[in-house]
C-alpha cells in the first residue's frame, strides 16, 4: 500500500494551479492540505524560511539569492524539463558518454524578459545532469528578445551552447543535441501539452534506441520524486541544494 504524505501548495504560488492539477492525479501519494505544516511544501523562492519545517521543499521559482537551508533540508527544484529527461532511459544511458558538444535551445512561451533567467536555469540543470559536472559559462549575450550563452563543463572537455528565444507560436519547449564521435543524443521536450511525451533518442553505432515514452509532465515526476524522498530513507536527489544554488548564482550573474 502506498504511504500517503501531506503536500501544501500556497494559493499565491505562481504555478499553484498546475501543481494542484498534478497532485490531483496522485491521490494515493498525497493529501493536499491547507496548512503549511505539511511534509512537502511548494515554494516560489521567496518564502523558504517560512516553510523550513517541511521535510521537502519543492522550488518552483527563481529565488533572488542563494537558498540558506540546514544541511538536512531537501529541496527539489520543479524544473519544467529536467525531470522528463531523468525519467528517460536513453538520457540515463547518455549520462555516461563523454560528449564534445552540448547545445540546448529553450523556446519560451512568451516574449517576456522575465522568462529568460528561468530558461537559463533549466538549461544549466540539463547540462549538469547530462554531463555530471557544473556548467561554467564564459559568455552570455543578450540579443533582441533572447540570449546566447557559451561555456564549458567543469573538469570536462565539453563545449556548451545555450540559447533561448521566445517561441513564435507560444510553445514552451526544449531542444537538446549532444554530440560525440560515438554517440549523438537528440531531445525534444514540448511542454505545451500536459502529457506530451518527450522525444529522446540516443543514436550510436548500433542505431537508435527508443523506449516506451513517458506520458507525464515534469511536475508529476517531481512530485513522485518528492514522495520517494519522503518514503525512502535511501532516496537521493539528482540536484543538491549546492547545485541549485550554484546555478542560481550563475543565472543572477549573467542575467541580472
Amino acid at each position: 500500500m502506498t504511504q500517503k504524505f501531506t503536500a501544501h501548495v500556497p494559493k499565491a504560488a505562481p504555478a499553484a494551479a498546475l501543481h494542484r492539477s498534478v497532485l490531483a492525479t496522485l491521490p494515493n501519494h498525497f493529501d493536499v492540505v491547507g496548512s503549511s505544516n505539511a511534509d512537502a511544501v511548494l515554494i516560489d523562492g521567496f518564502s523558504v524560511e517560512r516553510h523550513i519545517s517541511a521535510r521537502v521543499l519543492v522550488l518552483d521559482g527563481l529565488p533572488s539569492a542563494a537558498l540558506s537551508l540546514t544541511p538536512s533540508s531537501i529541496v527539489v527544484p520543479a524544473h519544467q524539463f529536467a525531470p522528463r529527461l531523468l525519467a528517460d532511459k536513453n538520457f540515463a544511458a547518455a549520462r555516461a558518454i563523454p560528449f564534445s558538444l552540448i547545445n540546448i535551445e529553450v523556446d519560451t512561451a512568451r516574449p517576456d524578459d522575465d522568462l529568460l533567467p528561468r530558461a537559463l536555469l533549466e538549461q544549466l540543470a540539463a547540462v549538469r545532469l547530462l554531463a555530471s559536472g557544473a556548467p561554467r559559462l564564459t559568455s552570455v549575450e543578450r540579443c533582441g528578445r533572447g540570449f546566447v550563452a557559451t561555456g564549458t563543463v567543469a573538469g570536462r572537455d565539453i563545449w556548451v551552447t545555450l540559447t533561448s528565444f521566445p517561441s513564435p507560436v507560444g510553445a514552451a519547449k526544449l531542444s537538446l543535441a549532444a554530440v560525440s564521435p560515438t554517440h549523438r543524443l537528440r531531445v525534444d521536450v514540448d511542454a505545451t501539452a500536459i502529457a506530451r511525451p518527450a522525444a529522446i533518442r540516443l543514436l550510436g553505432p548500433d542505431g537508435s534506441v527508443e523506449g516506451i515514452q513517458v506520458y507525464q509532465n515534469s511536475h508529476r515526476l517531481t512530485w513522485l520524486k518528492v514522495h520517494e524522498l519522503l518514503s525512502s530513507p535511501t532516496a537521493g536527489v539528482e540536484l543538491s541544494v549546492g547545485d541549485v544554488n550554484e546555478d542560481l548564482e550563475t543565472v543572477h550573474e549573467w542575467l541580472p
Binding site: 558538444l101 547545445n103 540579443c143 533582441g144 533572447g146 551552447t161 540559447t163 560525440s180 564521435p181 549523438r184
Partner: peptide, 19 residues
C-alpha cells in the same frame, strides 16, 4: 556563436560520427 544587430546565429558541426 555570433551576433549582428538584433540577430544571433549559432553554427555547429561535428564529424565523423557513427550515428
Amino acid at each position: 556563436a555570433m551576433r549582428h544587430e538584433e540577430q544571433v546565429a549559432s553554427l555547429q558541426a561535428l564529424m565523423p560520427g557513427v550515428w
